[in-house]
Simulated assay, not measured.
Amino acid sequence: MSFPGDDARRYASMLTERADHWSVTTERLAGTADAVADLSDALVTALAEGERPKFCFDADETGVGFGDPEATVSPERGGVYLLTDRRVYLRLGVGDEDESLSLPYADIVGVRHRHGRRRHRIDLAVSGAKYYLWIPSLFDADDVIAATEYVNYRHTAETPDSGGGGSSSGEPQSIRDRLERLGDAKSRGLIDEEEFQRRKEELLGE
């Protein structure tokens, strides 16, 4: 998806109005916030049609750890972590080009958070790899916790037959079980009414 500057800002503004969390801003999505202003393209250009941002964190100057929290790639021109309703998307300004990584929720097998006074971290595990996302302290620990819970919820929703998060027996979960988890996610504020209704219709249509 590609936009001229004005169109990118209008689309970013529309997505921001629909977002549930304060970290999703027009400035971050349109590429004018300090942390993303020097990246090659506006963040909205990476979104697929219909994809909705849920959380958007600036990357800490420490960057992203690959395999080890201290073995980091640090952003030279800023960076951002975008959590949408489909994936976790990372973009760092490194060298002359932006480096990006897309992690669909179905591929994420583990997530946890750590928080501190100066910076926080979200740890993501996929098959054969681990990623450590350092986040500056301008975001509260509660923001990081909420994002971690959302990743866990989305992984469970994308892998309903894995037994994760619901059934300890490993048996496929029933539609009723999945609807109960969906209702729980809504009551905890992890998803909004629109997403609740959409996913409910999908489940009932199976």
Rank of each mutant, 00 (worst) to 15 (best):
D161R: 09
S162T: 15
P4M: 00
L43C: 08
D177A: 13
A125Y: 14
T159D: 06
T72A: 06
R28G: 00
D123H: 15
V126A: 15
E171M: 12
T26G: 02
V88G: 08
H115C: 09
A46H: 11
G93Y: 07
G50H: 01
P172Q: 10
N152I: 11
A46Y: 14
S74R: 14
A46T: 05
G79D: 08
G65L: 08
S2F: 04
I108K: 04
H21K: 07
L179G: 04
R87S: 12
D140Y: 06
S102H: 04
G67R: 14
T25Q: 01
P53H: 05
E195G: 00
L47P: 03
W22I: 05
D96C: 13
V88K: 05
L82M: 13
V88Q: 03
D98W: 11
A185R: 05
S167I: 08
T25C: 02
A59G: 10
D58S: 12
S102D: 14
G67N: 13
L15R: 04
G128C: 04
Y132A: 14
V109T: 15
H155L: 14
K130N: 14
S102T: 13
G110Q: 15
F3A: 07
P53A: 04
S23E: 07
C56M: 10
R154W: 03
W134T: 07
E51V: 04
G110C: 05
S74F: 09
R181L: 09
R118H: 10
P172T: 09
K54M: 11
S127D: 14
D161C: 08
R178Y: 03
T45R: 09
I108N: 04
G79R: 09
E149L: 08
S162V: 12
R28I: 02
L133E: 05
A8S: 11
H155V: 05
S2C: 02
V44Q: 04
T26Q: 10
R199C: 02
M1I: 04
V111R: 15
S40V: 13
A106L: 11
I122C: 02
V126D: 04
G5Q: 10
T72P: 11
V109G: 15
T84C: 01
A141P: 10
D177Q: 15
E195R: 08
Y81R: 08
K54W: 06
R117E: 15
E193M: 11
R86Q: 13
R112C: 12
R114P: 00
H113R: 08
F139I: 01
R86S: 06
G170Y: 12
L47D: 00
D60A: 13
I122D: 00
A37N: 07
V36P: 12
D184Y: 03
R176L: 10
L103C: 14
I135V: 11
R154Y: 02
D161G: 07
Y89I: 13
E194V: 10
D140L: 14
T62H: 05
G189T: 06
